[in-house]
């Protein structure tokens, strides 16, 4: 799960893989701005077959947050 998300972040945002660690802050550490964040959520939705609401997107601060959200949605696909 983490590896796949790491790859998506690397491919979409141009961030070095070694910088994409669970505790990395999306904006502060990885330089992902609002537009890149929306695009990233779009790609994650497509990659995992899930839907990320705008409210959920607003809560994603770190890479670990993304992993946790995707895992939660895959455990409960109807949420």
């Amino acid at each position: 799960m983490f590896d796949k998300i790491q790859t998506i972040i690397h491919d979409e945002c141009g961030v070095a893989r070694e910088d994409i660690v669970p505790e990395a802050d999306l904006r502060g550490d990885l330089g992902i701005d609002s537009m890149a964040a929306v695009n990233l959520s779009f790609e994650i939705e497509n990659a995992f077959g899930i839907v990320i609401s705008d409210e959920e997107l607003a809560t994603l601060t770190t890479v670990a947050d993304i992993v946790a959200l995707v895992e939660a949605k895959q455990e409960k696909p109807n949420d």
């Binding site: 609002s34 705008d54 607003a58």
Partner: peptide
């Protein structure tokens, strides 16, 4: 549309909480 909506979301102070498509 992007810059207006992003500026508005900053005015509101809601970060990514503003639903641009709505």
């Amino acid at each position: 549309a992007w810059v207006v909506k992003e500026a508005y979301s900053k005015l509101l102070g809601v970060g990514l909480g503003l639903s641009f498509s709505r």
